[in-house]
Design a protein around this nucleic acid. Structure first.
Lengths: 142, 142
DNA sequence: ATCAGAGTGGGGAAAAGTGGGGAAAAAGAG
DNA sequence: CTCTTTTTCCCCACTTTTCCCCACTCTGAT
């Protein structure tokens, strides 16, 4: 279960540090195009689960096929080096419009990689909604 | 069940003492961004319950994705050290604008961490309302 | 007075995080 | 196919943060 938020810099060699709390032993991740122009990072296990779910989708639908195409074509293996970093593929870096400053967040079964500016913007606009839903949760006795 | 109010200082290493009455055995908590810019501290068990309820919430896909993103990104594991302290993550410290003096309160199934100044302000403005609501409750036989 | 548990503070080792050099491998040009 | 350029990877050196441990104070109970 990945949770938390971290800021890291992408160095000139496009290497990104993966926080120690996200690694716990994992030597390898799968990166792919995410939603809202961020990148998704999966462990091998959760990648497996997702592809299984995708395969269960009604493939006759044109939309589903297109989605899987983009999802799979953007995916790539990422090895973690001895310093705990991965190399961000150029294509995905461009897709997510990642600059020098990067925000890495844990979202339960996946890790997301955001350009820090974009993340801040997303955070700002989504926060009011968040508080609204959070109030609902506390009303439910949480 | 957490009740009570305590004041503690955050030391230079951002460590916060958790009152003994809040610990009873717990070696680990989950901290998250709370409402009214304080921090929530959950036990692992109630965290589990929350994530389960989250999945049951009737939200549109996009809403759910955004909410889980904010919720998970604001959360973090906190181990209690041998002295009964946790390390407050920098990002969350900034979020709650916590200074040197901290007020820790028990709110039933969660603990809340407030900057003492903020807490006092909140307390002052809410107290009259509290008495008002309390009167209503006594009408109900409580 | 003594003791035990609660609460504070700090030193120092270990781990996390950062940056860069240079070899090996891959890609592109002629 | 060969040579050059770029990309990838492995290694080393360094800074910062986190964690573990010890020592101390304070308060209340016996």
């Amino acid at each position: 279960m990945f949770i938390g938020q971290y800021e890291h810099a992408l160095d000139e060699k496009n290497r990104l540090f993966i926080p120690a709390k996200f690694r716990h032993g994992q030597q390898e991740f799968i990166v792919t195009r995410g939603l809202e122009s961020c990148l998704f990072l999966f462990t091998k296990e959760s990648w497996q689960q997702i592809t299984e779910k995708l395969n269960a989708l009604p493939l006759t639908k044109h939309e589903a096929r297109s989605f899987i195409r983009l999802f799979a074509s953007g995916a790539q293996d990422c090895e973690v080096d001895d310093q705990g970093r991965i190399l961000v593929p150029k294509i995905l870096k461009e897709y997510a419009a990642i600059g020098k400053k990067v925000t890495v967040i844990g979202v339960m079964n996946r890790i997301e990689i955001w350009d820090t500016q974009k993340w801040n913007k997303f955070y700002k606009t989504t926060k009011p909604k968040y508080e609204h839903i959070a109030e609902k949760l506390t009303d439910l006795g949480i």
